[in-house]
C-alpha cells in the first residue's frame, strides 16, 4: 500500500540559540489514520508539533502538504492548509458557552450582528457528525463541562474549521477511565471519517488502542516510524528510551535513521 502522506516533513533541523532540539527529523501523517507521536520528555515532540503548526520556523528541511512543497510562516498559514492543533490546556474560555468557544475570534456575522442561529446550527451539526451524545446543549457554559466534554469541544472546534490534519497534544492526560474511553473513541472516529490525526501521548495503552502508526522521537531524532501492527510495547519503550530496538531505530546514537 503506497498512500501519499497528506503531511510530510523531511530533514527538519531546529535550534534555539546554541541548543539544537531537532536533528534531521522526518515525519509523515496519512489520511484516515492516527499517527501517534511518542517520545520522552524533552525528545522534541512539542517543538516538532509547533513547527508543523507554524509557531516555530525551522532552520532546514522541507514541509510538504498533499505532496506539494509549502511555506508555513505562521499559524495562519498552517490553519489555511487545514492543520489544527488542540493543545493540552485546550485554550477554551470558561466563561463562554460551547458555540462561543467554537467560533471565538472567527464569529459568523450577518451584517453588523452575530449570526447566532447559523453558528449554533454549525456547532450542533459538527458535534452530531462526530456522534457526540454526551453534550446536552451547545449553549452550556464550558465551565460546567467535564474534562472529557471539554476535550470533545476542543476537538470539535478543530474539525469545524475544516481541519484536515488534527494534532492532539496529550488529550487523555488527567482524564478518568470513562472519559478517556470517550475521547479515544472520538479520536478514532475522526480518522475513520477520513481525517488525518496526530496523537501525542505518553500512555502506551492509548497509543496502541487507537493508532495506526507510531513515530518515536529520541533526543531530537526520529528513531523510527512504524506500523502499530508490527511492533510490541517493549520495542516502543526501547525506541523511546534508547532510540533503537533490535534492527529498528537509529543506527548509532548520532547516526542517521536506519
Amino acid at each position: 500500500m503506497t498512500v501519499t502522506p497528506i503531511l510530510e516533513l523531511r530533514g527538519i533541523d531546529k535550534s534555539f540559540g546554541p541548543v539544537q532540539v531537532l536533528h534531521d527529523v522526518a515525519f509523515s501523517a496519512y489520511p484516515g489514520e492516527v499517527t501517534a507521536l511518542v517520545g520522552d520528555n524533552g525528545a522534541g515532540k512539542s517543538t516538532l508539533v509547533k513547527c508543523i503548526g507554524g509557531i516555530h520556523s525551522f532552520d532546514a528541511g522541507e514541509y510538504l502538504f498533499e505532496g506539494e512543497r509549502v511555506q508555513v510562516n505562521g499559524p495562519r498559514d498552517a490553519a489555511a492548509l487545514g492543520v489544527e492543533i488542540v493543545y493540552q490546556d485546550l485554550a477554551l474560555c470558561d466563561n463562554l458557552d460551547i458555540v462561543q468557544n467554537m467560533f471565538l475570534g472567527r464569529e459568523k456575522r450577518r451584517g453588523p450582528i452575530l449570526d447566532e442561529a447559523t453558528m449554533e446550527e454549525m456547532a450542533a451539526r459538527t458535534l452530531a457528525g462526530l456522534s457526540v451524545r454526551t453534550v446536552k446543549s451547545v449553549r452550556q457554559q464550558v465551565s460546567h463541562l467535564s474534562g472529557g466534554q471539554r476535550q470533545t469541544v476542543a476537538i470539535a472546534k478543530a474539525v469545524l474549521w475544516n481541519g484536515k490534519v488534527v494534532i492532539l497534544d496529550e488529550p487523555t492526560a488527567a482524564l478518568g477511565v470513562a472519559q478517556t474511553a470517550q475521547v479515544l473513541e472520538l479520536v478514532r472516529r475522526l480518522a475513520d471519517n477520513g481525517l488525518t490525526v496526530v496523537l501525542i501521548s505518553h500512555n502506551l495503552n492509548d497509543v496502541f488502542a487507537v493508532s495506526d502508526r507510531i513515530a518515536a522521537l529520541y533526543l531530537g531524532r526520529m528513531a523510527a516510524q512504524v506500523r502499530t501492527t508490527d511492533v510490541t510495547q517493549s520495542q516502543v519503550v526501547e525506541l523511546i528510551t534508547s532510540g533503537r530496538s533490535g534492527d529498528l531505530g537509529l543506527a548509532t546514537t548520532n547516526g542517521a535513521t536506519a
Binding site: V177, T180, A181, L184, L204, N205, D206, V207, F208, A209, T228, T229, D230, V231, T232, Q233, S234, V236
Partner: peptide, 12 residues
Amino acid sequence: LGTAAHIRSRVN
C-alpha cells in the same frame, strides 16, 4: 483500552 498495549503486542 486499559490494556491495549499488552493485547496488541501479543497479537503482533
